[in-house]
Design a protein around this nucleic acid. Structure first.
Length: 200
DNA sequence: GCGGGGATTAACT
DNA sequence: GTTAATCCCCGCG
């Protein structure tokens, strides 16, 4: 599919205003497009509301995370370790805080054809040129959007615990990480679990 | 204000 | 396996 074709296949805002883990699974096999660059989403993690001790929402609404508490369908981008930008899709209905971290993409357009180019959340933002200034931006715009592809809904899903959240107690064990099973652009170690059904 | 630490990555030994 | 890079968020006083 061409970039113009992807633009015509943009997901409506309503897609994002669903259960956070459902959105995380549904994004697998979709395209994330920024300007003339695009990647196929192959790995995601769901972060829930204030009760989730691994989520930025655990602090309640703050200057940084407030968009997580609004309606789904906008970007939430923050700086991690002072070095890497992390791109998230806000999910859920207004007042139901949560977001989905895009952990890995495979190159589609405007990127070097190398599965490592978008393997890992810091590399996703570097490859697509995403940064904090996009926080709050709607995800159905002309410059930044998510689109369904032929892969959406047709991929086998692996699941597992989220990466880098050992501090979160029992929440660290929740199976809220999802990936396209066996895809070479998934960050290592790849999740081993088998989630029921397919994406979307 | 101050201090601790992080949803990571690449470059070391 | 270990560690530096590097910033700003957040809780507490």
């Amino acid at each position: 599919m061409s970039l113009a074709g992807l633009r015509r296949a943009r997901l409506p805002t309503a897609f994002f205003q669903d259960d956070h883990a459902t959105v995380a699974r549904g994004l697998l096999g979709c395209a994330l497009v920024h300007g003339d660059r695009a990647g196929l989403i192959v790995e995601t993690e769901a972060y829930l509301g204030p009760a989730d001790r691994a989520s930025h929402a655990r602090f309640g609404p703050t200057a940084r995370n407030r968009v997580m508490f609004g309606p789904g369908g906008v970007a939430y981008v923050y700086l991690c370790y002072g070095v890497h930008e992390m791109f998230n899709v806000v999910s859920g209905r207004d007042g139901d805080a949560g977001a989905v971290l895009i952990r890995a993409i495979a190159p589609l357009y405007g990127l070097t054809d190398d599965p490592a180019i978008g393997r890992g959340p810091g590399k996703v933002t570097r490859a697509l040129g995403l940064d904090r200034s996009l926080t709050g931006r709607a995800l159905d715009g002309d410059e930044l959007f998510v689109a369904a592809t032929a892969d959406a809904g047709a991929v086998a899903i692996a699941n597992g615990p989220r990466v880098g959240v050992a501090y979160a107690g029992r929440w660290a064990a929740r199976l809220l990480r999802f990936a396209v099973a066996g895809h070479p652009a998934v960050s290592r170690p790849a999740p081993r679990g088998r989630a029921p059904g397919k994406a979307r």
